[in-house]
């Protein structure tokens, strides 16, 4: 009990705990759609792309950081989906170039103008130092937005994730629904970047969703389980990171990985069957058949 209460005496830990827990839940929630659409590669690329905008804003216009980096992220997200949708050969390469170039720009900006050392590591692997109240508020706002989008567009999102062609033929504006999802994804990555870290955000999009997939065959339940798993990973990972003295993102991801192994062991063959190929059709999803 003592070990749980003691760190709460520090204001920075309180904020970190709130942000880590909420971030885990948000990424677990959004990750279900990303994993089932085979878009985890895009999630990975997007977090790197956003880092460029994040670095530029942090260094030069910190007060506008959410706005600037948010627009940067949404622009990257829409660029990536457009490239991926067109399904041309080389879409993967284009995404790779755009996102890694943006990441490299962020690294360059940080090395040139940033405070050397810790700040850079924190951005990559997550940190709870210097979390402001406004960051918490933004995180809550994005969570509310993501929840509202899923509530109001639940069936469209499900249908377009499962079967985009039939959804389109049934009168759903698939491109619009996908753009909306990419905006939610970009904003979710942006507000969790601080505490999880650029290089680890994609893992938290994937791990809770895959764990949830192993535990259920129902989409609705998968959404709920993945959110709870993400939340618990954030909470437990945060405490462990405090005691182990390692960056928050790394511990949160490690907790997720351990949870994955445990569930993998418990659910046995059935779980393996469920999760096999869960993130199969990554990259461009061109349905070309004559």
């Amino acid at each position: 009990m003592e070990t749980l209460i003691e760190p709460l005496g520090f204001a920075f830990f309180q904020k970190g705990l709130i942000v880590a827990t909420l971030s885990g839940a948000l990424l677990g929630f959004v990750g279900v759609y990303i994993v089932l659409r085979g878009m985890s590669y895009i999630g990975h690329g997007l977090s790197h792309a956003i880092f460029g905008g994040y670095a530029a804003m942090q260094l030069f216009a910190a007060q506008l950081y959410v706005l600037g980096a948010g627009l940067w992220g949404i622009a990257s997200a829409i660029a990536i989906t457009t490239v991926a949708r067109r399904g041309r050969v080389g879409a993967d390469a284009a995404i790779g170039v755009i996102t890694t170039a943006s990441f490299a720009l962020g690294v360059a900006l940080f090395s040139k103008f940033g405070t050397s050392g810790p700040a850079f590591d924190n951005a990559l692997f997550g940190s709870i130092l210097g979390i402001t109240n406004s960051q918490i508020i933004w995180l809550v706002v994005v969570m509310a937005f993501a929840g509202l989008v899923v509530l109001l567009r639940y069936r469209e999102l499900l249908f377009t994730t499962f079967d985009p062609d039939v959804a389109q033929a049934s009168g759903i504006k698939v491109a619009r629904v996908e753009a909306l999802l990419m905006i939610v994804l970009a904003l979710s990555i942006l507000v969790t970047l601080n505490v999880i870290g650029v290089t680890l955000v994609a893992a938290m999009l994937v791990i809770p969703a895959v764990i949830a997939r192993m535990l259920t065959d129902s989409f609705g339940r998968m959404l709920a389980i993945s959110t709870i798993v993400g939340l618990v990973c954030g909470l437990v990972g945060m405490y462990l990171s405090y005691y182990a003295g390692v960056p928050s993102g790394t511990m949160i991801v490690l907790v997720g990985a351990v949870a994955f192994l445990v569930v993998f062991g418990i659910t046995g063959i059935r779980g393996r069957e469920r999760a096999a190929g869960v993130d199969e059709h990554s990259g461009p999803r061109a349905t070309i058949s004559a």
Partner: peptide
């Protein structure tokens, strides 16, 4: 994608 997590009911309801 037959591995997609939906039941027959959920699928038809789409």
């Amino acid at each position: 994608d037959w591995k997609f997590p939906v039941t027959v009911f959920e699928c038809v309801l789409m």
